[in-house]
Amino acid sequence: MPILDFLFYIFLVVVFFQVIIYLLVYGKFSFLKPVKISRKKAPVSVIVCAKNEGGNLEQFLPYILHQNYPEFEVVLINDSSSDTTLEIMQKFAKRHSNIKIVDVKAIETFWGNKKYALTLGIKASKYDLLLFTDADCKPVSKFWISEMVGHFNEKTSIVLGFGAHTKIKNSFLNKLIRFETLITGLRYFSFANMGLPYMGVGRNLAYKKELFFKSNGFINHIRIKSGDDDLFINQVASANNTAISVCKNSFTTSPAKTGFKDWINQKRRHITTAKYYKLEHKVLLTTIYCLQVLFWLLTIILLIGSSLWITVSALVMFRLLLQYVIFGMAAKKLDSKDIIHLIPVLEIFLISIQLFIFITNLVSKPNHWK
């Protein structure tokens, strides 16, 4: 069998499995109807861990403090900052009685470990419902707390939220970052919706304090400096205890990186945690990525060299059309409609950068929480 014919049959298999994933996995989330949430107003501890984030706290903390919610505390964790972070926390605490400051001093055993600081903050919190965000994050509405915690009930112990990035006009990097955020959100929401939750993002995440201590917190991966959000959720989330919140009022937004080098370094840190996921999740995510790479690689080879280029072109157009529809509906849910027209370009760039990051991480280790 000629090599191009063999590659064509592989291409058919790749397209088939991608269509199945788009329809049965992503499609179920993209067309998911809003879920009614509880209107009970249980008290909540909002937890923000900050390390040298004085300026961000000045800018974004007021959006948390002015939430329309009857009873909540804000636990501010100063993780051994060397700037004005602690002073700014204390300034806010003088004006707001619901602020609790946890000043973490660096110790040799857990030097530079955000999980240690978070654990101390969680221990200091007084409520069972914990809502997490970062110092550079802003809730997009005054109903962020009520929308996120409204999904809790007797069975649900984890609520996965969405952390978007601020739009920057005429910036390709910003569109690429927001596309990656969209794809990540679409993926973890879709699999959680199917009963296979595997990660969450610390920019917008909630779980019960009881679950944290019953699961021994971060102890199983305390030596891994990253992964306070996704590794913990990968460890404790199940089909029965996890809910998703995709109402726009429940979103947070944060500034995106403005330089390619800074963004790649950030993604290098994030990707290092994936190898510690459960085996079934690693296999699933690796398969999805390999299908993407094979689709574009085989598309280029077959369009250039195969006599079946018309059939290949038709399959590519069908796959792209389906992707536009599914991703378009997801982007509407996740407030990212402006980048959908660039899907093919952004996808090729993203999978190329991810491959570069994977190879780079094999050569050298990335820096972590400082």
Score class of each variant (00 low, 15 high):
88 I>M: 03
323 Q>R: 12
81 S>I: 00
208 K>H: 11
39 R>L: 08
128 D>H: 14
190 S>Q: 04
77 I>C: 00
295 F>H: 11
246 V>G: 08
73 E>M: 03
112 G>I: 00
206 A>Q: 03
218 F>D: 00
96 H>C: 14
362 L>E: 10
170 N>W: 09
245 S>Q: 12
126 K>A: 07
191 F>L: 14
327 F>K: 08
246 V>K: 13
336 S>A: 11
89 M>A: 03
288 I>P: 04
334 L>M: 04
109 T>C: 09
139 P>M: 04
363 V>R: 14
333 K>Y: 03
87 E>M: 11
100 K>V: 05
282 K>M: 15
137 C>N: 14
85 T>E: 01
176 L>W: 13
336 S>L: 06
3 I>W: 08
175 K>D: 15
100 K>Y: 05
333 K>I: 06
102 V>A: 00
141 S>A: 13
268 R>D: 02
283 V>N: 06
90 Q>T: 04
246 V>E: 10
256 A>W: 00
219 I>L: 14
79 D>C: 02
105 K>E: 06
188 Y>W: 15
201 V>H: 10
204 N>E: 06
192 A>K: 03
26 Y>A: 04
4 L>Y: 08
65 L>S: 02
5 D>T: 06
170 N>C: 05
264 I>A: 10
66 H>D: 07
218 F>C: 03
342 L>A: 14
81 S>T: 00
354 Q>H: 12
58 E>M: 13
235 Q>V: 15
330 A>D: 09
213 F>L: 04
360 T>Y: 12
152 F>R: 00
186 L>Q: 05
99 I>H: 05
282 K>Q: 14
140 V>D: 04
3 I>Q: 10
247 C>I: 11
253 T>P: 01
285 L>D: 06
154 E>W: 08
184 T>A: 14
89 M>T: 00
263 W>H: 11
70 P>E: 07
